[in-house]
Every structure is written in C-alpha cells, then in structure tokens.
Computed example of a mutant assay.
Amino acid sequence: MTNKSMHTLASLLFACILFALSIASAQAGPLNDGLHAFKAGDYQQAMAYWKPLAEKHNPDALYNIGLLYMKGLGVKKDYRAAKHWFKQAAKYGSVDAAYNLGVMYKKRRFGYPSSKDALYWWRQAAERGHPESQFNLGVMLVYGNGTGKDVPAALKLWQQAARQGNANAIHTLAQVYEKGLFGIPADPAKAAYWEKRAKQTARR
C-alpha cells in the first residue's frame, strides 16, 4: 500500500461531527417546537422546550442539548457539558450521540486524545447499525488504533456501512479491492462493483 493510500484512508477516520438535530421520537409537541425555535435562531427557547424532555430521559432532547453546548448556541461553548449530555443521550438510546462522543475523544475535544474511548463509543453505535460508526470502527481495527488489528472485522464493518449507503465505506472498499490493500487480495470484479456504487452515491 502506498503512503498516499494510507493517508487517504486514515484521513477518512476523522468524519465530521453530526450536527443534525434529532426529531426521531416525535414529529409534534415540545421536541418539534424546539426544532422550530432552533431554526429561527432562538436557541434559548429551543433549550426551554427540550430541557423538560431531557429531564425525562428523552434521548433526542438530550442529544439536541448536547449539540447546543458543543456548538455554543444559546449557551457558552462547553465540550465537557456536551459530553455530559451526549453520554446521557447515548445511555438512553441515541446512536448519534455515541458517534459524536467517539469523534470528540479522537479529536482531543477534552484536552487529550483517547483512541480507546473513541473505540468504545463507536463500537456501541456500530453494534446498533450506525454506518458512520461502523466505518470509523473499521478504520481503527484495520490500523490497530487503540486495539489489536483485525482486518476481517474491519472489512465486515465497511461492508455493513456501505450497504447503508455510507460514501466513505463504499469508496474505501473500491480502493481495497482495486489495489489489494491491508493484505486483502485484489478483486477486479468487486472493485468494479464498489466503484459503480461510489459513482451512484456521488450523483445523489
């Protein structure tokens, strides 16, 4: 594998923090009212709608409050406060919160990098079908970052993420099978399949 290929795949690990608000558990009521307030730029009002729900352990509200602290919207930016809310959200079922925790640990948002903490949170989300976490966990495993190397497990995770349309996973699989990376034999047929999928994904 060339240094360029290693850099390309490694850089994909640092996927963007998810900023999308969560409204999965309700399309009406306080959660949605908070969304409207957020879109109007009234972040303190959004917090006022979400806080009572968060106190009742609503994972979407907990996650959304974490985003407010992470981005400093209506409150002072505070990564440790964001971590608190994301951990609560993850505890009550938010896979997006678990994913964001992994990225924040990996990107030193708490003053130190922690591959093991990133690995823990991405594994939690990946096991529940979160494609970005599946991709990132695969990269950790293929490089042995914070854990032992496990190329077959990484390949399986990338395939799971790719089947859900994750562009990073699709692109990576195309490269892996085209160039025979990480000890995986080159396979022109599989490379062509994933390259076709990559083009289809790019057109969406």
Rank of each mutant, 00 (worst) to 15 (best):
H84W: 12
W122N: 06
W194M: 02
A37T: 03
F110R: 03
A28N: 14
Q200G: 12
S22W: 03
N145R: 06
A81K: 13
K196M: 09
Q160P: 08
A46T: 04
L31T: 05
H171V: 14
A48V: 05
F38E: 07
K4I: 11
A48G: 01
M70T: 00
Q134P: 06
T147N: 08
G72H: 09
L101C: 01
A24F: 04
G183Q: 12
L68P: 03
A40N: 13
L157K: 09
Y92K: 03
Q44L: 02
Y105F: 15
L181W: 15
A202P: 00
Q88F: 04
R163A: 11
A153N: 03
K116D: 12
D150Q: 02
F19H: 13
H171K: 13
L155I: 11
A40L: 00
Q200I: 05
A54D: 08
K190G: 09
Y112L: 07
G93T: 09
K39W: 09
H57L: 05
Y177K: 03
V142R: 13
A20D: 15
W121S: 00
A61P: 02
T8A: 13
K149N: 09
G180W: 06
L137G: 01
K199W: 03
F38Y: 15
R203M: 12
L137I: 00
A189S: 13
Q160D: 12
K106V: 05
N166W: 09
L9N: 07
A118W: 00
A81H: 03
Y120D: 09
W194C: 08
I17N: 10
H130F: 03
Y99A: 08
K56S: 11
A15W: 12
L181H: 11
S114E: 02
T147Q: 12
F19Q: 13
K149F: 05
K51A: 04
A125M: 02
E55G: 02
A161F: 13
R80K: 13
Y143W: 15
L173I: 07
N64V: 07
G66E: 06
L101S: 11
I170S: 01
P185A: 04
L9H: 10
R204L: 13
K56N: 12
K71W: 00
V176W: 01
S25R: 15
N3S: 12
Y43H: 06
Y99T: 02
R80G: 04
A126F: 11
G165R: 08
T8Q: 12
D33G: 09
K149Y: 06
S11C: 06
K179N: 14
R108G: 06
K196V: 00
K56V: 06
A82W: 04
P152D: 07
D42Q: 13
Q124D: 06
R123F: 03
F135A: 00
T2P: 09
D33M: 03
D42R: 14
A189D: 14
A20I: 05
D60C: 07
R109A: 13
Q200Y: 09
T147A: 14
L73D: 04
R80C: 05
Y193S: 08
C16Q: 15
A118N: 05
W194D: 03
K39A: 07
P30E: 01
